[in-house]
């Protein structure tokens, strides 16, 4: 075998390091697939609660997992993957909402009535409930940002106050005080709107 053939064969050869890389890559992909099947629905609900648009929420979930794919090397270092993922998608949806400044889809009562569960309710009851929920969500949108964020995250049963604090990057006591203020403000807004009717 001549020297050139040997060099060519050397180029064609798959080195051990690349085999190790491929093995690691497959492991990363499997881990990522497991994360998707485990947390995609949770992330979607978090995204939907802010964006209130199914297509935008799904885009946000995809973007969150693409970010995870880019940082898959540091996946093993993450202590609580669920909170980490929720934090990623939370930042994405807040950024999107800030940039888009569009009217949420659920301002439309009809759309809200379509989305919300309506088992065993008459058409009138569905319409009335949708109107009520739309009104409440409009009041939530009037809250200050910090209070609104805590109130929205507290609606998720999966998240306790420590995890909410971790998602928002604040202390647990701040979460509690903001939640207290948010509830009071919310009650005031609802009372005010009720007195105007």
């Amino acid at each position: 075998m001549s020297a050139s053939q040997t060099i060519f064969a050397g180029w064609m050869e798959i080195p051990e390091s690349s085999v190790r890389d491929q093995t690691r890559q497959f492991a990363d992909e499997e881990a990522l697939a497991a994360l998707v099947s485990q947390y995609a629905a949770t992330l979607y609900r978090v995204a939907y609660s802010v964006l209130r648009n199914p297509a935008d929420a799904e885009d946000a979930v995809q973007e969150a997992f693409l970010r995870v794919l880019r940082h898959r090397d540091s996946l093993a270092e993450v202590r609580d993957q669920r909170v980490w993922l929720i934090r990623i998608v939370w930042n994405i949806v807040l950024d999107r909402k800030r940039r888009a400044k569009t009217r949420p889809e659920t301002d439309d009562v009809t759309e809200l009535a379509r989305v919300l569960p309506s088992d065993g309710l008459t058409a009138e009851q569905i319409a009335s409930a949708a109107q009520h929920h739309a009104h409440v969500l409009a009041c939530v949108d009037q809250l200050p940002t910090k209070e609104r964020e805590v109130l929205m995250l507290s609606a998720f049963e999966e998240l306790n106050s420590v995890e909410i604090a971790s998602v928002l990057g604040i202390t647990e006591s701040s979460v509690r005080s903001r939640l207290f203020r948010a509830r009071n403000l919310m009650a005031g807004l609802l009372e005010h709107s009720r007195s105007l009717r």
């Binding site: 995609a40 629905a41 979607y44 609900r45 978090v46 939907y48 609660s49 209130r52 199914p54 799904e58 659920t106 989305v115 919300l116 569960p117 009520h132 929920h133 409440v136 969500l137 009041c139 939530v140 109130l151 929205m152 507290s154 609606a155 998720f156 049963e157 509830r183 009071n184 919310m186 009650a187 005031g188 609802l190 009372e191």
Partner: peptide
């Protein structure tokens, strides 16, 4: 009254938060 109002708000938010994924 405040508690009832905030409960109503939170129940709506919980309803939105519990929507199933497509």
């Amino acid at each position: 009254g405040n508690t009832a109002a905030s409960d109503a708000a939170e129940s709506t938010l919980r309803l939105v938060a519990s929507l199933s994924a497509p």
